[in-house]
C-alpha cells in the first residue's frame, strides 16, 4: 500500500510536468539525429559489431542515456522534497523506510521507462532499427533493471545533499562519466586496457550491451552469444545492491 502510494505520487507529478518529458528527451534526440548522422557518414565502411551502420549502433546507447538521466534525476527529486518540506510529511508517516525507497525507485523507473519507450518508438518509426515486438518485450525488463539501479543511486546522492546546487556536481562527475564510459558511442573491443577496464566497471555498459544484443542481435554484444545473461546478471546485482545502499542512506537521513 505504501509502496503503491509513493509510486502513484511519482506518476501524478510526471504526468503533470510536461516540460520534464520534453526536457529529458530533447538532448538524446539531438544526439541521435545530429551526432548519429554526422558520425554515420564519417564512419562509412568501418566495421562495427553486428555489422550495422553507426547510427543503429549508437541508438541503444542513446536509449541507455535516457534511462540514466531520467532515473538519476528521479532519485534526486528527494532533495526537492526535502527543500519543500514534503519529506517531513513522508518521514513522519507510519511506513517503513524501505517501502518509501522502493516506491520511489519503482516510480522513477516507470517514468524513465516511459521516456525510453518514446525514444524507442522514434527509433522504430524512422527505421533506425526495425526491431520486432518480441525484442521490445525482452528489452522492457532489462531497461527496468537499468532504471531501478540508477534511481537508487539518485536517492543515495539525494540523501547526502541538502539543496539542488549539488545536482551540477552529480551531473558532471557521475552522470557524464557513466554515460561516456558505457560504450554508447564506441565498441569496447579495440579500446586501450585502462579505458576498457573503466568501461567494464560501469553498470550502464551492461545495459547498453544488453540493448544491443536484444535490438541488433547477439553479434552486436561485446560478450558474445551468452552476453545477454551476463548483462542481466550484472544489472540484477546492480539494482539489488543499490536498493540496499539507497535504503540505508535514506534511513540515516534526518
Amino acid at each position: 500500500m505504501a509502496v503503491y502510494t509513493i509510486w502513484l505520487r511519482e506518476m501524478l507529478r510526471f504526468i503533470r510536468d510536461k516540460s520534464r518529458i520534453l526536457g529529458t528527451l530533447g538532448m538524446p534526440l539531438f544526439f541521435l539525429v545530429f551526432i548519429g548522422t554526422g558520425l554515420n557518414s564519417a564512419f562509412q565502411g568501418i566495421d562495427l559489431p553486428g555489422g550495422t551502420n553507426y547510427i543503429a549502433f549508437m541508438a541503444p546507447g542513446i536509449v541507455g542515456m535516457v534511462l540514466l538521466f531520467g532515473s538519476v534525476f528521479s532519485g534526486l527529486t528527494v532533495v526537492i522534497d526535502k527543500q519543500f518540506g514534503f519529506m517531513k510529511e513522508i518521514l513522519v508517516a507510519p511506513v517503513s523506510r524501505s517501502s518509501i525507497v522502493l516506491g520511489k525507485a519503482l516510480g522513477g523507473a516507470t517514468t524513465a521507462l516511459l521516456q525510453a519507450m518514446i525514444l524507442l518508438s522514434f527509433i522504430f518509426i524512422f527505421g533506425v532499427i526495425p526491431f520486432s515486438l518480441n525484442a521490445l518485450l525482452l528489452a522492457l525488463p532489462l531497461m527496468f533493471l537499468i532504471s531501478l539501479g540508477f534511481v537508487n543511486i539518485g536517492v543515495l546522492f539525494a540523501s547526502k545533499l541538502d539543496d539542488p546546487h549539488g545536482f551540477q556536481i552529480v551531473m558532471n562527475f557521475f552522470i557524464m562519466p557513466i554515460f561516456f564510459l558505457s560504450g554508447a558511442f564506441f565498441p569496447l573491443d579495440k579500446l586501450p586496457v585502462w579505458l576498457k577496464t573503466l568501461s567494464l566497471l560501469d553498470p550502464l555498459t551492461y545495459g547498453v550491451d544488453g540493448l544491443r544484443y536484444i535490438l541488433l542481435g547477439s553479434s552486436a554484444s561485446f560478450f558474445g552469444a551468452d552476453g545477454i545473461w551476463i548483462d542481466f546478471a550484472v544489472l540484477t546485482g546492480f539494482a539489488a545492491i543499490t536498493l540496499l545502499l539507497g535504503a540505508h542512506a535514506f534511513d540515516r537521513m534526518q
Binding site: 502510494t5 505520487r9 510529511e89
Partner: peptide
C-alpha cells in the same frame, strides 16, 4: 500521532485533494 508542521510541507505540484488523498493512503 498527527502533526501540523510549522514550516510548509505540502506537495505544491499536486492538488489539495491529492495531498489529502496521499496522506490518507499513507496512514492506511
Amino acid at each position: 500521532i498527527g502533526i501540523v508542521f510549522q514550516d510548509p510541507s505540502l506537495d505544491e505540484e499536486l492538488t489539495g485533494y491529492e495531498n489529502m488523498d496521499f496522506h490518507g493512503r499513507l496512514y492506511g
